[in-house]
Amino acid sequence: MATLPPTLSSRKRDWIPYAKIALWIALLAPAFILLDRILLLGQFSGGNFVDDPVELIQHWTGNTALILLLLGLAVTPMRRLLGWNWMIRFRRLFGLFAFFYATMHVVSWFVFDHQLALGPIFKDVLERNWILVGMMSWLLLIPLAVTSTVGWIRRLGGKKWNRLHQLVYPIAILGVLHFLWQTKLLERDPVLYTVALVILLAVRRWIRRK
């Protein structure tokens, strides 16, 4: 970094703080749209009347979390293949918001489906594969969210931290499996996620071999 002419270096990254603000807004947008649709009958986002608000909450937050996880996984391939090194600056936000939406998703299930009754919650988790893998996916996200700060990177050291954050791969696999296992028939969306995930994993292997 020191070898770069200072003017060039700073000019090159000038836009990053703005992009970060834009990204924050973009990543919060799904939450606002959801609130608007449910509390204000879609006055701002123009959605239709919501027949089943809880279903909407769960589908909306589940899909958002999974998409953000996959976007997070796409960062490294983009850097390597397209040379978009700046993308690394945004990866943490993808991850944190994936956790944010996954947590809304899970909490809505705790509250609306089970009214926080622990017995039925455990029963469901143990009896149903698709809930079990969803739960594993969410539980594994917790340590990653906790250790996402600079302080924790320092405390763990880059190597350990990296190894821990490799967990994002099983997390995404479990998330996709969670969706695949819950549908009655082979539906389009879970298949699309599966394809995206397989491509990302394949690209990763290919990059590693090179």
Binding site: D51, V54, E55, E127
Partner: peptide, 19 residues
Amino acid sequence: VDHPRWSQASERRLGEFFR
């Protein structure tokens, strides 16, 4: 009698939040 993937013990009346 549960469905293999979910319980049939409760239901959500459309429009309501709790089962």
